[in-house]
Nucleic acid binder design. Structure first.
Length: 271
DNA sequence: ATGGTGGGCCACCCA
């Protein structure tokens, strides 16, 4: 089974890129963030045409929005609100016997708040929201046993935890997405599972690896001022089934690209 | 230290 996550930055605008990606990489389950449309405006028939007949959509007008598109039947869908807000930042599906799984697999798709520009809770309410969101993720995961059995957390977590997850560790210590407080809170979320970083399980943590390059930097590939903001984590039991991961860097160079690229994990289930 | 580019959508919000 191939699982993919991609912050698409408008699913309607970038439908041709979704199609290109799905034809080239054949994910069984595709988790998207920043779909930026209401559920009724989601291009569901296009996804069905591409073979993704099973959709779990949690959208909203203009901002945020997440979706899980699956080739395999979905047994159960849950969308959890966070921080007492109406933001569409989470959706989860469970795949079971109808999808060919002896034991059910649950996949959580997150779009963690970006957190604004100033990493200072005294002046930036967006940063407060981001930290509170991470705290709520951790406490909920622990209390509800979210990482029990076979489960995964994927998405745009908007934090680059390792020194090698950014182009320049020292230069980014005071930049939102790589500050010590964010890295610490993300580690607490990972420990609350506990979750395994499936990508760093397969890619040497000493090697720089990015999934996002700003639109504002010209010549993104040569400058290579990227960050690894997009993640695939698995529960302890599911980690044993990871046989490969891939970050599709080339997608950043496609026509009218998202600023994020797809991240994939392959599992040794035949479905 | 600043400003650089995108998307949604119609005055600015967000990244």
């Amino acid at each position: 089974m191939i699982l993919a996550t991609w912050n698409i930055n408008s699913v309607r605008l970038r439908l041709p890129l979704v199609e290109k990606f799905c034809l080239e990489h054949k994910p069984d389950v595709l988790c998207l963030q920043e779909t930026k449309c209401r559920d009724a405006e989601f291009p569901s028939s296009d996804f069905r045409r591409l073979g993704y007949e099973h959709l779990a959509i949690n959208g909203q007008k203009g901002y945020h929005g997440v979706c899980i598109a699956s080739r395999l039947p979905i047994e159960k869908t849950v969308a959890r609100p966070f921080c007492g807000m109406g933001d569409s930042r989470h959706v989860a599906v469970t795949l079971g016997a109808a999808a060919g799984f002896e034991n059910p697999v649950t996949i959580h798709n997150f779009y963690v708040p970006a957190g604004g520009d100033e990493p200072d809770v005294a002046i930036n309410p967006k940063f407060v929201h981001k930290l509170a969101f991470l705290d709520e993720m951790a406490s909920w995961m622990k209390a509800d046993g979210v990482a029990d059995g076979l489960s995964a957390v994927v998405g745009d977590l908007n934090i680059a935890p390792l020194e090698t997850d950014v182009w320049n560790h020292k230069a980014l210590l005071k930049i939102v997405s790589h500050t010590p407080i964010e890295v610490e809170k993300l580690a607490a979320v990972a420990a609350a599972g506990p979750w395994t970083d499936a990508v760093r399980l397969r890619v040497d943590p000493a090697v720089k690896l990015f999934s996002w390059w700003s639109y504002r930097s010209a010549d993104w590939s040569n400058a290579d001022k990227g960050r690894r903001l997009d993640h695939i984590w698995t529960s302890r039991d599911l980690a044993k089934n990871v046989v490969g991961v891939e970050v599709v860097r080339a997608a950043r160079g496609w026509e009218r690209p998202s600023d994020h690229v797809p991240v994939l994990a392959t599992f040794n289930f035949d479905v």
